[in-house]
Amino acid sequence: MSADRRYEWGQGALAAGDAEGARDLFAQALDCAPDWPAGWFALAQALERLEKLGEAREAYSKTLALDPEDAQGAALALARLGGAKPATAPRAYVKTLFDQYAARFDTHLVEKLGYRGPQVLCEAMERAAPGRRFAHVLDLGCGAGLFAAAIVSRAQKITGVDLSPAMIEQARAKGLYERLAAADLTDFLAAEPAESADLAAAADVFVYVGDLGAVFAGVFRTLRPGGLFAFTTQSGPSQGFAVGDDLRFSHSESYLRELSAIHGFAVAEFCAVSTRKDRGVDVPGWAAVLRKSE
């Protein structure tokens, strides 16, 4: 209880801008519980705010050593500070994040962050393929089912997949899906029948995937000829992909276009968009609609 109390006080201090006070409180919490990954991660955040980057790297590395599955996302934080760049966000981090977020997901995302990813994707698809309807939609990283609600009038059946079981239960409650799976995205695509879907959509999902090669390959195999692959990403580096301060991946336009060509997709629509806000400011991104060759 002593460690928990100091941790909570430290989080309050950090939120209030008192990074020095937060550092001291997190250090006191770790005196009580020296092998607590969340405590080390919080200490690293405070040290980073104080611009003690070497000490912050050490604390993030300690977090990762104590929890190799990385529920805190320490590998992403280290990449942001110049460490090795992971191909994807750790599964344990994404699952933990969204299992905790599930009950308030719809309200917080739409009302607090101004999220409009499904609307952005549907508008992009309408420009690429006006009036098109879909026999089978794959909702990749379906979350609580916001994209399914936006596309249901144009879909005969919808299959959803998400890494978080709690999010899958939120989606199930909407009654929009024929089938739902709690699984890793690439594992799910590998198990789907070839040429079985007309549309694969990923709204605000690739912020947790840096290297998109395996996903593009899996989607191409799963789509029927002429099928569409619609997705949003955050925009960031001039080349490749990067981890931002928000521990999310951003992708360059050149990377996405090159990957599309490599995997046999034609670009039907590609535009600059924003799907959400961060502290009241639009987060820049891309919306893309790709078409599998006939």
Results as ranks from 00 to 15, higher is better:
E253C: 03
A16P: 00
G114A: 08
K292W: 04
A33Y: 02
G175W: 13
V94S: 01
A287T: 02
H108D: 03
R179Q: 15
A261F: 03
S61D: 12
R23H: 04
R57V: 04
A202L: 06
A77N: 07
G39E: 09
L256W: 02
L228D: 03
F206Q: 04
A190Q: 13
S252H: 07
T159K: 02
A148S: 12
G280K: 13
A194K: 07
T222W: 07
A191V: 01
A103L: 11
A288K: 03
E195V: 05
Q28K: 15
R57L: 08
R291H: 00
E169F: 14
W286N: 13
P284N: 10
M1P: 12
G10A: 15
A166V: 06
A71E: 13
P225Y: 12
A89I: 10
D211P: 02
A182R: 04
A129Q: 04
A102T: 01
Y177L: 10
A148F: 08
T186R: 15
P284I: 02
L43N: 06
S274M: 11
P237E: 11
A287P: 05
T88D: 08
G54A: 13
L138K: 02
A230W: 09
V281N: 02
V120Q: 07
A102V: 03
A13W: 11
L223S: 09
M1T: 05
G82W: 14
P225T: 10
G131A: 08
A44E: 06
L185S: 06
L81W: 14
A194S: 13
W36Y: 04
A59P: 05
I158C: 06
L97S: 11
G175C: 14
E48R: 14
S235I: 00
V267K: 12
I151C: 15
R224H: 01
V205T: 15
A217H: 06
D139G: 09
L199G: 00
W9D: 07
A191E: 14
T222P: 01
P165W: 13
C122Y: 00
V215I: 07
E178M: 12
K157G: 13
R291T: 06
F134T: 07
D187N: 12
L290D: 07
Y101A: 02
F220I: 00
A203C: 09
G12V: 03
S153G: 11
G83I: 13
A56F: 05
A33T: 11
A89Y: 10
E123R: 11
L223A: 10
T63H: 09
G227Y: 06
S252C: 07
A38V: 06
A135E: 15
F265P: 01
D4C: 03
K95H: 01
E123K: 08
A242R: 14
A266Q: 11
E111A: 14
A38S: 13
D4V: 09
Y177I: 08
E48S: 11
E195F: 03
E8V: 11
L189M: 11
G244R: 09
G114P: 00
A183I: 00
K95S: 06
V161P: 07
L176R: 15
A217C: 05
V281E: 11
L138W: 09
E258D: 15
T222R: 09
L109I: 01
E195P: 04
Q239N: 05
F147S: 14
H108A: 03
Q239G: 06
G143W: 08
G213H: 12
L247V: 05
A124T: 01
A135L: 10
P237S: 10
L189I: 05
A242M: 10
A149C: 02
